[in-house]
Design a protein around this nucleic acid. Structure first.
Lengths: 204, 204
DNA sequence: AGATTGAACGATTTGTTGAATATTCAGGAA
DNA sequence: TTCCTGAATATTCAACAAATCGTTCAATCT
């Protein structure tokens, strides 16, 4: 069994190298198989198909990112507002830089989000869990006020409101500074709202 | 001069019929010309090109929509919150229904937003003017509280936050009821925020 | 003159064909 | 038996050819 896992990671490592070097479309299953000293057919005993290898890599990648986010959400000496801020900005910067620096990542992101829409939902759901924690903290400390609906719903709404900053270069040509400025504003809107508020209880 | 305008509207009407019947790609300039009993070449004395006819049609359409929005924003006996709500929902419903009922509209929207990105900006800027008016009303009545930045910026942020609901079926397969539910939540988030608020001053 | 035409041009799209490649599976090795 | 192979098959892709269509402009009409 551990045997089987080893082979899987071997395949994944080979595919990672090929994908990042030549791109998803330009690497063939035969090449990955050769890199692993096995036949193309054998790959299919470990992964249902080529796309599943890419999805597996993306999953690993995202789980690392999730840990990072979880750490930001746990920062003990920060206000909930600051932690929410850090979360949303980390999300923006990560995807922006990833797509900017690595055209291959862009290619794979496009393909996966087209062929595997559930994957995007899975990522959203996982990030939402972290947002929920921050919201609950904020509520417990009295820093936030309940809006009546369950926090999960509130987290969903936050995600809907920052949707524009998810794959930024997919639907606008804005630069990172401009995007950060906008996100800053949306963040403020989300936290403070438009209605009159109590004089800030967020003293240090 | 009025003569020239007549010919333009004749062309536009012919193109409208063709576009909505066969789609943008499947209607040829020659066909539109024939419908107007003129030669293809003559069309170019009235429009720089095919895409400009489509853009003109979209402009007319949007201006009608803008008037509708302006009326909603002017409703005298509604709170600013309600008017903002009406505005955002009207926007969602219009685009959703338009793209749902008329696959041709979808085609044209895609082409224009690809080939003429300024057009999308122009639409946003015009809607923003209306949002600004509502915000100013809300501030004047004390229903909203200034966040320190100019209302134009605030309006921009609102638009950023509801971006997901602009061409809904472009980046999600959600149904209209589900989208409305989400927009409802985002709207609440924008208006009330997460921070503690004064007990509602919006009594009737 | 100015307005209009429609044939001519070049860009874009469409259709087709052959090669490249993902996937399968009958068979062979361990 | 279980694991693996590699040729066979089905799908996708790329390149080329043909046709279509947007656009132009010299010639024609009013």
């Amino acid at each position: 069994m551990a045997e089987k896992e080893d082979v899987r990671t071997q395949i994944v490592e080979a595919a990672k190298k090929r994908f990042s070097h030549f791109g998803y479309a330009k690497t063939t299953m035969a090449e990955v198989a050769t890199d692993c000293s096995m036949s193309p057919g054998n790959l299919y005993r470990f992964f249902p198909g080529k796309l599943d290898i890419a999805e597996y890599i993306a999953t690993q990648d995202f789980e690392k990112h999730l840990q990072h986010l979880a750490a930001l959400a746990d920062a003990p000496d920060k206000t909930a507002r600051q932690r929410l801020h850090d979360l949303l900005f980390e999300e923006l910067r990560r995807t922006y830089n990833k797509l900017e620096s690595d055209p291959r990542a862009y290619e794979i992101a496009l393909i996966i989000s087209r062929e595997r829409p559930e994957f995007a939902n899975w990522m959203l759901a996982n990030e939402r869990k972290i947002i929920v924690k921050v919201l609950e903290d904020g509520l417990r400390q009295g820093e936030f006020q309940s809006c009546g609906c369950p926090v999960e719903k509130t987290a969903e709404m936050i995600q809907a409101a920052v949707m524009k900053f998810r794959y930024p270069q997919l639907w606008s040509k804005l630069t990172l500074p401009k995007l950060e400025q906008e996100l800053e504003g949306v963040m403020q809107l989300i936290v403070d709202g438009l209605s009159p508020r109590l004089p800030c209880p967020e003293a240090a």
